[in-house]
Design a protein around this nucleic acid. Structure first.
Lengths: 160, 160
DNA sequence: TGCTATTGCGCAATAA
DNA sequence: CTTATTGCGCAATAGC
């Protein structure tokens, strides 16, 4: 799960400060996307930190980072690069695939529920039939016992 | 259903020609969104026409439009306007609401399917029990018929 | 390490 | 007019 409610905020803030940690190399051609750009929220969520924050308490003794670069600087891949577009396009394809899959799964679940409900009704009916039939036979046997308790012997384990 | 595969193309084309039918007033501040901005598809889909196209053959005599504006020109509301942001924010809220609703619906369907399946198994078991019980009673009665065919059936009460 | 798969989000079109 | 739905792309991140 990825709660983008948080990451979007970060992202928005990052977008407000181009040339920070990653992307947005100063290429004037296409300033694509820029997520929301609502009335500029001048509130850098300094309290919202990324994974680096959570890692801050971990034991680094076993890591022995060679360079120990501060904000990680993920190879500023930044927009409109061919690699960026390639990655995006691949992800877009994956997203479509995943959503198609989800749609099919949901549809199947709905159909299964429908089918189970129908089958359920049939089973209920069957139980009704069997119960009635059973009652009839039991009644017959009880009548026999009333009339001739000596003769109706084989009733052995008939109690069930 | 809104096949955005098509509308996205239109949208992309429109974005390539700012100041066309709507939006994108020449405000240099925020060039927001700009959907895909992949290698600019220089292919104006002139064959893709909107609703106005379909209406072109209709009978307007009963309408008597007062002004009869040509391409409708939807009040170029164009980005970064306060009204635009307001609309967007409202829609975003509606979208979140709708998706929450969808998620809940899906979850309920899954739970219902699960529940129905369990109930189904119980019903199957019940049918098994009843069937066996019935077989036993039938067997008892058949034995009685073999032993004393004259006495047994009288108990049925069916005989006049 | 790098890939695909998932997921929440916002946008725009459009359905209701 | 409004809100509700839906497909899409983006970015974060889960997962292998």
């Amino acid at each position: 799960m990825s709660d983008s409610r948080v990451s979007s905020v970060i992202q928005e803030w990052v977008s407000s400060y181009p040339g920070q940690t990653h992307s947005q190399t100063l290429n004037p051609v296409a300033p694509h996307h820029q997520p929301t750009s609502r009335p500029p929220t001048a509130t850098p969520p300094s309290f919202l930190l990324t994974r680096a924050h959570l890692c801050s308490r971990q034991d680094f003794s076993s890591f022995l980072l060679p360079t120990l670069r501060a904000p990680v600087t993920k190879r500023s891949i930044s927009k409109d690069s061919a690699e960026y577009r390639l990655r995006r396009e691949k992800n877009n394809i994956a997203v479509r695939k995943s959503r198609d899959k989800a749609r099919r799964r949901i549809l199947l679940t709905q159909q299964r529920a429908q089918q189970l409900q129908e089958e359920n009704q049939k089973l209920q009916m069957r139980i009704g039939q069997l119960t009635q039939e059973l009652d009839t036979l039991k009644h017959i046997l009880s009548q026999q016992h009333l009339q001739g308790p000596d003769e109706g012997p084989a009733a052995a384990g008939a109690a069930i």
